[in-house]
């Protein structure tokens, strides 16, 4: 989920909400008699470099994607656009592989996001104890995050190898038959998901740890005095305190899961995501259409579907979180 990752370091608040300190105090306007310098213009000069790049390489491509999705645009002749209306979309919905990719994106998304966030939560809880060598533990848990998608996927592709992969050999040692991690639908999706889980669990654990450290120690002390077990402390002090962070990480992981691409591409190195597309995700399907089959217009339609999907999922996530919150507040 590399593209969504910068987001993860921003704010554990509700997505899209303006940051709290937008209203921070501002120095008074400089007095107008300042040596003829155009004081009112100069603040914009600081913004020009960022916003020029932002407009050219951030906003423009995004809007233009919607436009291109209505045209026939081919990779060999990227300058020529031929009007197709909603043709790219209808072709998309008529393609069974689109639905396969949509379903795979969903199942791989669940298989990777749920265990990853649950384990991260547990790890954060453990990391929050007073520990010897805590910098070591934190840094070591972040090693997978430092490893690129490409490298991690190549390594896991070998670990999951059918004949000589370490995982099948380990299974053999305990008497389990070798698993076909490449061709089995469930098996291949578990294998691809495990790459995501490996790379992001430690990172999310640190995000949760940062959230945990904002929970006052007195709450735990009070719970201790009341004789609450550690498990009950976790349920009744830790979880409520972490709620905003949990919502935030699930939104970020959902966005990342929706556009999963490198892991399924490099698991076997093919754009079809396995022989019967058994682990092809939407991201990979888009790449296959655009750069495998040269249909850029079709790929743009897929991008736009992914965007809508993300909007719906993020909206649902926020709605669920708010509803739950209301329910508990009403108790």
């Amino acid at each position: 989920m590399p593209s969504a990752e910068p987001l993860a370091r921003t704010s554990p608040k509700a997505p899209g909400a303006p940051p709290a300190s937008l209203t921070a105090p501002v120095p008074p306007e400089p007095s107008p008699r300042r040596r003829g310098r155009p004081a009112a213009l100069s603040p914009y000069a600081f913004l020009v470099p960022f916003f020029t790049l932002f407009a050219a390489f951030g906003i423009f491509p995004l809007l233009y994607t919607a436009y291109v999705s209505l045209y026939r645009a081919e990779l060999q002749t990227p300058g020529e656009l031929e009007w197709r209306g909603l043709g790219n979309y209808t072709a998309l919905f008529a393609d069974p592989f689109f639905w396969t990719a949509l379903r795979n994106t969903f199942t791989i998304g669940v298989l990777s996001t749920v265990p990853q966030l649950l384990m991260a939560l547990g790890l954060a809880h453990v990391l929050n104890y007073r520990l010897r060598g805590r910098t070591f533990f934190r840094t070591a848990l972040l090693l997978p995050y430092a490893t690129s998608v490409a490298a991690a996927s190549l390594i896991f592709a070998q670990l999951f190898g059918h004949d000589f992969g370490l995982i099948n050999r380990l299974l053999d040692l305990v008497g389990v038959h070798p698993v076909d991690w490449q061709n089995g639908t469930v098996a291949s999706q578990i294998a691809v998901s495990s790459i995501v889980v490996w790379r992001w669990t430690g990172y999310n654990a640190l995000i949760y740890l940062a959230g945990l450290q904002t929970i006052p120690a007195e709450l735990y002390e009070a719970a201790e005095v009341d004789g609450a077990s550690r498990w009950r402390q976790f349920l009744h002090v830790t979880l409520p305190g972490l709620r905003p962070t949990i919502v935030f990480t699930s939104v970020v992981s959902t966005i990342g899961a929706t556009q999963l691409f490198g892991e399924p591409l490099l698991f076997e190195g093919s754009v079809s995501g396995g022989i019967s597309h058994q682990y092809q995700t939407l991201g990979l399907y888009m790449y296959e259409q655009g750069w495998g089959f040269f249909h850029l217009g079709r790929a743009a339609a897929i991008a736009w579907v992914m965007f809508l999907l993300i909007a719906v999922l993020v909206g649902a996530n926020a709605w669920l979180a708010r509803r739950r919150y209301r329910k508990e507040a009403g108790q």
Binding site: S3, L7, F57, P61, Y64, A300
Partner: peptide, 20 residues
């Protein structure tokens, strides 16, 4: 801030046409 929510991967097609 809002643009941080939008994955850049979704803009690759026009971006590619641009660099071509």
């Amino acid at each position: 801030v809002a643009s941080m929510m939008i994955p850049p991967q979704l803009g690759v097609i026009p971006l590619f046409m641009l660099i071509v």
